[in-house]
């Protein structure tokens, strides 16, 4: 279970104080597929960074399965990212000179998994995200945008994280490929019982998630709670 308690992040910009995240609180049950929508600059990515321990909140706390992130030292936060979080980025952010399977193996290597085990799991995950086996050993720059995003999702799942944070995962993809990616995230959330939080400005994509939040001027409001929409509908 993910609990976000009165989260605030503020920056100084000259004489002004900006609060892209201003008193955000919510909870997500395990295995939930949720989305946050909002305009550009509304603070979506900042909120995601706080949840992923890439940034520290000015105040407030994030509690993951009863463990508070506030006050954790840098080393523990790195461990949290490695073990409990999976990131999916708009720009994919894969390592360009590595193959698809090597990219998926990276987080497992950082977690200390043995090579044979991580190779086996990486291939299994790439199959789950429906990347053709013959493309698994290709370098990243020889894959299409949709294929790269599938690899990124497989990488995010590598260490069986509690929470996957996806920042505009379809932002660089065409509509049809974007549809496939969100279907994939939905099915993975269900199959792996993993909480997935998607940040997007695409309302049609957000409608396919169980819970939909709206972030406006740093304030979060929940728009919809509904049963998960079946894939492809």
């Amino acid at each position: 279970m993910i609990e976000v308690k009165d989260l605030v992040r503020q920056f100084k910009s000259g004489d002004r104080t900006i609060k892209p995240v201003n008193g955000v609180s919510f909870e997500l049950e395990k295995g939930t597929l949720a989305s946050i929508v909002g305009k550009s600059g509304s603070g979506k990515s900042t909120l995601l960074s706080l949840l992923g321990a890439l940034d520290k909140p000015t105040s407030g706390d994030v509690v993951v399965d009863g463990v508070s992130l506030a006050g954790l030292p840098a080393g523990k936060l790195t461990e949290y990212r490695r073990r409990d979080i999976g990131f999916v980025f708009q720009q994919f952010n894969l390592i360009p000179n590595l193959s698809a399977v090597d990219n998926v193996m990276l987080p497992m290597e950082f977690a200390g998994m043995r090579k044979t085990a991580r190779l086996e799991r990486a291939r299994s995950l790439l199959e789950q995200v429906q990347l053709d086996p013959e493309k698994q050993s290709r370098r990243i720059n020889r894959l299409s945008g949709g294929e790269q995003q599938r690899v990124a999702i497989a990488r995010a799942l590598a260490n069986k994280p509690k929470l996957i944070l996806a920042d505009e995962p379809t932002g660089n993809l065409d509509e049809q490929t974007g549809e496939h990616i969100i279907e994939l995230l939905s099915s993975l959330s269900r199959d792996h019982n993993t909480t997935i939080l998607v940040v997007t400005h695409d309302r049609s994509l957000a409608q396919k998630t169980e819970r939909r939040f709206r972030l406006q001027q740093g304030k979060l409001s929940e728009e919809t709670v509904r049963p998960r929409v079946a894939a492809g509908t």
């Binding site: 790195t78 990131f87 980025f89 950082f110």
Partner: peptide, 16 residues
């Protein structure tokens, strides 16, 4: 820098 940032985001230690 971006690649290093990504590696850190996915859990790489500084020493690694």
């Amino acid at each position: 820098r971006r690649e290093i940032g990504v590696l850190k985001a996915i859990g790489a230690r500084n020493r690694t």
